[in-house]
């Protein structure tokens, strides 16, 4: 796979070339950084740590119509998914999260909607040179320049971006924009190593997950769950903003005779999530729900797919309104083992 240089002066042209396709990139909208479609002439904001909401809604929209139908009809009308999307400026952790979620959506049953959207997306990553305060990706198998899930990785080398193709899709993207790119020199590759090493040095938080997946079942009745869940509000901030959280709810929405079946994100932190028709709730309080969140990420998922369902992006720590800190919880878990 090839590696090329893109001078930052040519950046607008590079973006211009891509806007022919549906281009999503971080942009500041309503004073907030988020992934949004880039219109012609607009420029993505790349000087950022990470977006508040992960780009997972590009492949797994918060609300997705599965099909439409008439209540008295016999036909269903399915969505046509054929628009190619380029996701520009994805952080390596968010790209990695998609690889992790892929395992679930292609497990016992292939989810056609998710699979199709995944096929249509080209992921152009941007390695972190200034990691955030709560990043801990190296602890869970990632890194500031991890290429997992990416088609193309960009590394900021000051004056230039280094573009490295990871997959065929990435290679194709390089070919498309060839006239804007320059050949790399050995010095560039050394510079890249330096940037990445420096970034890794800047990551302050860490946990050692060794022993946690096997140890968690033994802590089922431990008092630590009471301690860490006491302040939980039961809101969905941590799960909705988590790049690997993938739970959904399916509803039929009917207006008159027109109906659609849609799926929306759901959160295991909601009381309604496990509520049975009978009124019984197997996870009746915030304690069980918090325990489930940690267990799902660090135990069940590891059991099933051999990977921790947490990429260490730190969003749940940043935005929890009551400072429930997953690193602290895991430290307590380690102590209790």
């Amino acid at each position: 796979m090839s590696a090329m240089l893109l001078n930052k002066e040519k950046w607008p042209d590079f973006v211009g070339k891509l806007t022919g396709k549906q281009l999503w990139a971080p942009q500041i909208k309503d004073e907030q950084l988020r992934f949004a479609p880039v219109a012609e002439g607009e420029e993505p904001a790349l000087d950022y740590k990470n977006t508040r909401v992960p780009p997972k809604n590009v492949v797994f929209p918060q609300t997705e119509t599965l099909f439409r139908f008439q209540v008295d009809g016999e036909e269903v009308d399915e969505p046509k998914l054929d628009e190619e999307v380029v996701l520009l400026g994805v952080r390596p952790c968010d790209a990695r999260s998609m690889v992790i979620v892929d395992k679930l959506f292609s497990w016992d049953y292939d989810d056609p909607y998710y699979a199709r959207r995944r096929e249509l997306v080209t992921m152009v990553g941007l390695a972190c040179s200034e990691p955030g305060l709560n990043c801990f990706c190296p602890s869970v198998g990632g890194g500031p320049a991890s290429t997992e899930g990416l088609d193309l990785l960009m590394v900021d080398l000051g004056e230039n971006y280094l573009l490295e193709a990871i997959t065929e899709k990435g290679e194709a993207l390089i070919n498309e924009t060839k006239e804007l790119l320059e050949e790399t020199r050995d010095a560039n590759l050394e510079q890249k190593e330096k940037v990445i090493n420096e970034a890794a040095q800047k990551i302050k938080r860490s946990i050692d997950p060794e022993g946690i997946p096997v140890g968690l079942p033994g802590l089922w009745e431990d008092s630590l769950w009471q301690r860490v869940s006491a302040s939980c509000l039961g809101c969905g901030t941590c799960t909705f903003l988590c790049p690997t959280c993938h739970c959904f709810d399916i509803q039929d929405e009917t207006e008159g005779f027109e109906s659609r079946r849609c799926r929306t994100w759901d959160s295991c932190m909601f009381e309604e999530y496990t509520l049975h028709t009978s009124g019984h709730n197997p996870r009746p309080s915030r304690l069980e729900r918090t325990r489930n969140r940690i267990n799902h990420k660090y135990n069940y998922y590891v059991d099933k797919f051999d990977v921790i369902a947490c990429v260490g992006c730190g969003r749940c720590i940043n935005l929890c309104p009551v400072n429930i800190d997953i690193v602290e919880i895991l430290k307590q878990v380690k102590e209790a083992l």
Binding site: L233, C235, G236, F240, F270
Partner: peptide
């Protein structure tokens, strides 16, 4: 349009 319906406003 930005609301993600996490219901933290309600819960808090």
């Amino acid at each position: 349009s930005n609301c993600i319906r996490c219901y933290s406003c309600r819960n808090v």
